[in-house]
């Protein structure tokens, strides 16, 4: 049987009372009947709200129990941001180091090319004078070498210019990484809001660390540089 069918006799009585009161212009009777009708509906409404609240609480409880999410919000996301920051720093340092070397090497190649060109002119004249009386093979090999040195240096300079431009990757990948970092930060604050919404005062980080067997004062499990590796090994008597 439908809800309406069950409620029908009760509702019908009040509806009738309402319509009679209306016909009589009896204000008091009208509002009294209306109040009764509203009252009939209210328990349903209250129980609906109660059910919704319960559902919400269950969802939040489940979220709270999902400590994995809390861990992601509090530990892994900041960690991801740190790692991306590290990528930015490393690529920046590597690109600058490359640029240092390009800037140092360019003038060297240029100087060698210039010197080879100057020597080649001088050598041609020198060779012409000695042509009859000297080892012509050595003379022509020297000439070839000077000419090749000039061309090779020019090629080195062009390659260095290409290496220079290629370092632009640091800017382009850096912009992508910054975009991802921004997204990660947004995700972090959304998760933080959700964990706050779940109400419960979540166990402090130190407590959860202890439960998970982590000691925050201890060094991270990954050695970060050669100094760490050396320290670690010497600590082990190596």
């Amino acid at each position: 049987m439908s809800n309406l069918a069950i409620m029908k006799p009760e509702y019908a009585a009040y509806v009738e009372a309402l319509s009679e009161a209306l016909a009589r212009d009896d204000e008091e009777a009208f509002f009294s009947a209306l109040d009764h009708l509203v009252h009939l509906r209210t328990p349903d409404f209250v129980s609906e709200v109660r059910k919704l609240t319960g559902d919400l609480q269950t969802a939040l409880d489940r979220f709270r129990i999902e400590s994995r999410l809390v861990d992601i919000a509090e530990n892994e996301i900041p960690d991801v941001r740190d790692r991306l920051e590290k990528v930015l720093q490393m690529t920046d340092a590597a690109a600058h180091r490359t640029l240092d070397l390009v800037e140092q090497s360019g003038p060297l190649a240029e100087r060698t090319a210039k010197e080879a060109a100057a020597l080649a002119d001088w050598w041609t004249e020198f060779r012409r004078r000695l042509a009859d009386e000297s080892d012509t093979e050595a003379l022509s090999r020297m000439e070839e070498f000077l000419s090749a040195a000039r061309n090779d240096c020019e090629r080195v300079r062009r390659n260095l210019a290409e290496v220079l431009l290629t370092q632009g990757y640091q800017d382009l990948t850096g912009q992508i990484i910054r975009g991802v970092m921004k997204l990660v930060s947004e995700l972090e604050s959304t998760l933080a809001e959700l964990t706050q919404l779940s109400g419960e005062d979540l166990a402090p980080k130190a407590v959860r660390d202890a439960i998970a067997g982590r000691d925050p004062s201890k060094k991270p499990a990954v050695a970060s540089d050669q100094k760490d590796v050396d320290e670690l090994l010497s600590g082990l008597g190596r």
Binding site: D92, H96, L99, E103, A161, L164, Q167
Partner: peptide, 16 residues
């Protein structure tokens, strides 16, 4: 440019 590497690249190209 906010990336110092890119500023350096452009500066080098202008020098060239």
């Amino acid at each position: 440019d906010d990336f110092s590497t890119m500023r350096r690249i452009i500066k080098n190209l202008l020098h060239d």
